[in-house]
Simulated scan of single mutants.
Amino acid sequence: MPSTCAYQMLLGSGSREDSIVEEAWGLWFSADSAIWFPSLWMGIRGGGSGAEDTLGIVPSSVVLTSFQVMSRVFLIWAVTHSVKEVQSEDSVLLFVIAWTITEIIRYSFYTFSLLNHLPYLIKWARYTLFIVLYPMGVSGELLTIYAALPFVRQAGLYSISLPNKYNFSFDYHAFLILIMISYIPIFPQLYFHMIHQRRKILSHTEEHKKFE
């Protein structure tokens, strides 16, 4: 864990807020940081992607990107971080690898596009490798949620039972099942949106080459 002096040099010292942030700082340097820090960063960058879409900096579907962002943040914090037992599952590694490769390709594509010097290989990778990476990531996400279900039920995690003064109940176990079901209508939209984009963009590139 970083020393207090090193932390104070970076963020200052003396306030209650500093001590709170210092706890969070220490969390990322725990034994789990090899997974959680990169995963959090990908979630944050996903949020940046949503903002970039809204501002028109990059060409993507705002609705579909928003779903990706929310699903990633939810999976990181509300499932994998909250249910320690699933952190050693192979499915976690599956979606982390898929996310990592996807984001490397995505931001290489965005960077070279903004520089008006986009290599065809990166464009091809952006609109081709998702064919494998998207199902791989979704499979990892769903398998991780499924693995968490028995632990969530046993611990009653995030669930609210009756009676209580608000006369309100919430079953987090059932909510996770609904989340899994929601992938059925949403994932095909995302996937076939990319298939459509691939046909349009790569075919346009091929036609452009013929005229050169």
Rank of each mutant, 00 (worst) to 15 (best):
121 L>I: 12
94 L>S: 04
47 G>S: 05
154 Q>K: 15
9 M>L: 12
47 G>C: 09
3 S>I: 06
126 R>K: 14
200 K>L: 10
145 I>W: 03
106 R>N: 14
146 Y>A: 06
14 G>K: 08
32 D>F: 13
102 T>E: 10
172 Y>R: 05
15 S>R: 07
75 L>W: 09
129 L>T: 10
124 W>N: 04
155 A>E: 15
102 T>W: 02
166 Y>E: 03
19 S>R: 08
3 S>D: 03
34 A>W: 15
100 T>A: 14
103 E>N: 04
195 I>V: 15
118 L>M: 12
56 G>D: 02
51 A>F: 13
110 Y>T: 04
145 I>N: 04
58 V>F: 06
61 S>C: 13
81 H>S: 12
14 G>A: 08
90 D>S: 11
129 L>Y: 01
84 K>S: 11
165 K>N: 12
125 A>S: 12
192 F>Y: 15
87 Q>A: 05
119 P>E: 04
118 L>I: 04
24 A>G: 00
137 G>A: 07
185 P>V: 08
62 V>M: 08
154 Q>M: 10
187 F>N: 05
31 A>F: 13
144 T>A: 13
108 S>I: 02
11 L>T: 01
196 H>V: 10
187 F>D: 07
209 K>C: 05
62 V>G: 02
167 N>L: 05
135 P>Q: 00
107 Y>C: 01
173 H>K: 01
137 G>Y: 09
174 A>E: 13
32 D>H: 13
86 V>S: 09
179 I>T: 12
65 T>A: 11
26 G>P: 03
16 R>N: 12
185 P>W: 03
209 K>A: 10
96 V>L: 09
5 C>P: 00
114 L>V: 00
125 A>G: 01
150 P>D: 11
101 I>N: 00
67 F>R: 01
9 M>F: 02
14 G>N: 08
197 Q>V: 06
